[in-house]
């Protein structure tokens, strides 16, 4: 009984906290278009389908060596990187702000460089 009460109290607290967060309003994503003009497809299409475009392209690019397709991650980064940070991630980064808002975790940046035109220096092993 005690345990049940504790569980209920915990659940209620959780619900209250989540309501409070909603009342305060989850900050809307900052969508700053650094290079106004035409993207490779209409905005609605990009919002819904960019992951499919990139997902299929990445397999063609890596496995079949087909380069220079319309949809490609470096193309996205080069156009959408912030002019101040040079990156598509970070707090208001083009990719990150939306992905934080929609709570969709992406793996891209564990391997891909999120900064446009970045030049890494090699070292002697």
């Amino acid at each position: 009984m005690v345990r049940l009460l504790a569980l209920m109290a915990f659940l209620i607290m959780g619900a209250v906290a989540s309501l409070a967060a909603h009342a305060a309003g989850v900050p809307k994503p900052v969508i700053k278009i650094e290079n106004p003009g035409q993207c490779i497809a209409a905005t609605e299409d990009m919002r819904v389908n960019h992951m499919n475009m990139l997902g299929h392209q990445r397999d063609r690019s890596l496995r079949q060596g087909i380069r220079g397709e319309k949809a490609n991650l470096n193309g996205c980064i080069n156009c959408h990187a912030s002019k101040t940070t040079g990156s598509v991630i970070g707090k208001d980064g083009f990719c990150e702000s939306c992905h934080t808002y929609t709570a969709v975790k992406v793996d891209c940046w564990q391997c891909h460089q999120p900064k446009a035109g970045y030049k890494a220096a090699g070292i002697k092993p």
């Binding site: 035409q38 063609r60 079949q64 060596g65 087909i66 380069r67 319309k70 490609n72 193309g75 156009c79």
Partner: peptide, 13 residues
């Protein structure tokens, strides 16, 4: 930048 994106993709390996 869009010009570069508009070029035809390569044939692949």
């Amino acid at each position: 930048i869009e010009v570069s994106q508009a070029s035809a993709p390569s044939q692949g390996a």
